[in-house]
């Protein structure tokens, strides 16, 4: 037991690598804070384009969304970070990771917002228009708020997945939480930094994870 603790929860190691881990956590958090609003915005934009109700546009959007949903996020990152430079298109890891997360999640958020907009009864829009409210204002102030409420559960769940997906940044040498833990582990020859990083991820994300679980419970109960 003592040997186990010395390896997996070595106090000296933990104290010495904690500042490094916290600096990594900061990078992780900033990745999520930059990528999440951008993804939400582009997802909402895609969903609003569905409202144009142009047959060709709708078909193109479905194809794009399904493409985004069927390419693993890591494959996308590898293309952006390792393949685009062959075209002379080079970008810093931070930008590459944010771009990857935004493209990947535009598909997911777009699909969620689309379903949300479709879930708002048509008469809401008709009533707004009949009252002489302009179409953009009807969409923005009447339809979108109800749509967002209807899809709050998948939105929260996907936001959590986005935050978790920032860990792939470690594979393009971004010094975020997972990466610094790996570097530290190579220096101290014990897995404490990795265990500590996992614990930090858990501590930071767990409240959101509980929230998502509660939302999902409500959704599935409403289904029956």
């Amino acid at each position: 037991m003592q040997a186990f603790l010395n390896n997996f929860a070595n106090v000296d190691t933990f104290v010495s690598v904690l500042p490094l881990l916290l600096s990594g956590l900061l990078v992780t958090v900033s990745l999520a804070l930059v990528a999440l609003p951008l993804s939400l915005l582009s997802g909402l934009l895609v969903a609003l384009l569905f409202a144009v109700k142009n047959r060709v546009l709708t078909a193109v959007l479905f194809v794009l969304i399904d493409l985004c949903r069927s390419i693993p996020v890591l494959v996308l990152l590898m293309i952006i970070f390792y393949a685009l430079p062959f075209l002379g298109l080079m970008m810093p890891p931070f930008v590459a990771v944010v771009l990857t997360l935004v493209i990947n999640n535009t598909g997911y958020f777009g699909e969620i917002f689309r379903a949300g907009l479709a879930s708002v009864p048509k008469h809401q829009q008709e009533a707004g228009l009949a009252l002489g409210i302009s179409r953009p204002r009807v969409l923005l102030f009447i339809v979108v708020p109800q749509a967002i409420r209807n899809v709050a559960a998948p939105l929260a769940s996907n936001a959590l997945e986005l935050a978790k997906a920032t860990s792939i940044a470690s594979l393009v040498t971004m010094p975020e939480l997972l990466r610094v833990a790996q570097v530290a582990q190579a220096n101290v020859y014990n897995p404490t930094p990795l265990v500590a990083a996992a614990a930090l991820y858990f501590i930071v994300l767990w409240p959101f994870s509980r929230l998502v679980a509660r939302y999902e419970l409500k959704t599935i109960k409403a289904r029956y």
């Binding site: 978790k164 860990s167 997972l178 996992a198 991820y201 994870s209």
Partner: peptide
């Protein structure tokens, strides 16, 4: 459900 898959993989 909370810890990223890649982190578990590395653990």
């Amino acid at each position: 459900r909370t810890i990223p898959i890649l982190v578990i993989l590395f653990l």
